[in-house]
Amino acid sequence: MDIKVRVWRQSGPTAGGKMVTYDVKGISPDASFLEMIDVLNETLILNGDDPIAFDHDCREGICGACSMVINGVAHGPEKATTTCQLHMRKFKDGDVIDVEPWRAAAFPVIKDLVVDRSAFDKIIQAGGYITAPTGTAPDAHATPVPKKDADAAFEAATCIGCGACVAACPNGSSMLFTAAKIAHLGLMPQGQPERDSRVIDMLQAQDDAGFGGCTNAGECTTVCPKGIPLSLIGRLNSDYRKAISKR
C-alpha cells in the first residue's frame, strides 16, 4: 500500500508544532499502524531526519501507551481497538491519514505524538488504591464477592488508562477514566472503607489537573479501546453526591 501521513511534529514541550506530510510506500496491509510508523521512521533516520517520537510498549492492546488521534478519532477508526492493534488493511491505498497527539491542557505534548499523562497518575495517587496490609496474599475465598459485582468491577478494571476518553471528549474531561477507577474499587468489599474519600479526592485531583467537566456527550465511551460504559459516570456522580452529603 502507498499512503500519505500528515503527522504533528513538535521538537519539544515549548516549541511550536505543525502537521508535516510524509509519503509511505510499499506498506503491507497486515502491518499495524505502529509498524507503519516504524517503517516511516527507518526512512527518516536513513535520510538523516529526526524520527517521529511516539509512545508504545506492549503492542498487544493492554498497556495503553500508543496514544494517537488518527483522522480525528482517538486510536483510529476501529472500534474497541488500540492504535497498536489497528492494521493498515483498515485504510485504502492512496489514503491521506492525519495523526495528532492527544489534545488536552492536562496532557502537554513532550515531543511529536508523545504527551505527558502524569495527570492520570495524580488522579490515581489521590485515591485509586485500597489500604491493606501487604504480606502473604490472602486466600481467594476469604472475602466473598457476588459474581455480578466481580464481573462489573472487572469490566471497569479493564481500563488501561490510555487517555483516549480525554482526547475524544469535547470538554477535555477524564470523567470516564476516573469513573472506571472509582467503580472498580468501589464495587469490591475491599474498596468500601475509602469509598467516600476516594471519589472526593480523585475528582478534586482531576479538576486540579485541568480536565474539563462531563456533559454526557458520550464521545469517551465511543473511542474507549476497552468499551468502558458511560453509565459508570452516573455511578461516580451518585457516589460523589452521597460522599459530600456525609461531610
Binding site: R6, W8, M19, V69, N71, G72, V73, D98, E100, R103, A104, A105, A106, P170, N171, G172, S173, D207, G210, F211, G212, G213, T215, N216, A217, G218, E219, T222
Partner: peptide, 29 residues
C-alpha cells in the same frame, strides 16, 4: 464556569476533527 473550564482543558484544537458523534442536541446545548 463549566464551559470556561472545558475551553481551558483543550487549548490546542485538533487539525482533523470529525463532527462529534453524540446527538445534535448534545452538541448544541
Amino acid at each position: 464556569v463549566l464551559t470556561i473550564r472545558a475551553k481551558k482543558a483543550r487549548p490546542v484544537k485538533y487539525a482533523h476533527r470529525p463532527k462529534i458523534q453524540g446527538s445534535y442536541a448534545a452538541r448544541t446545548m
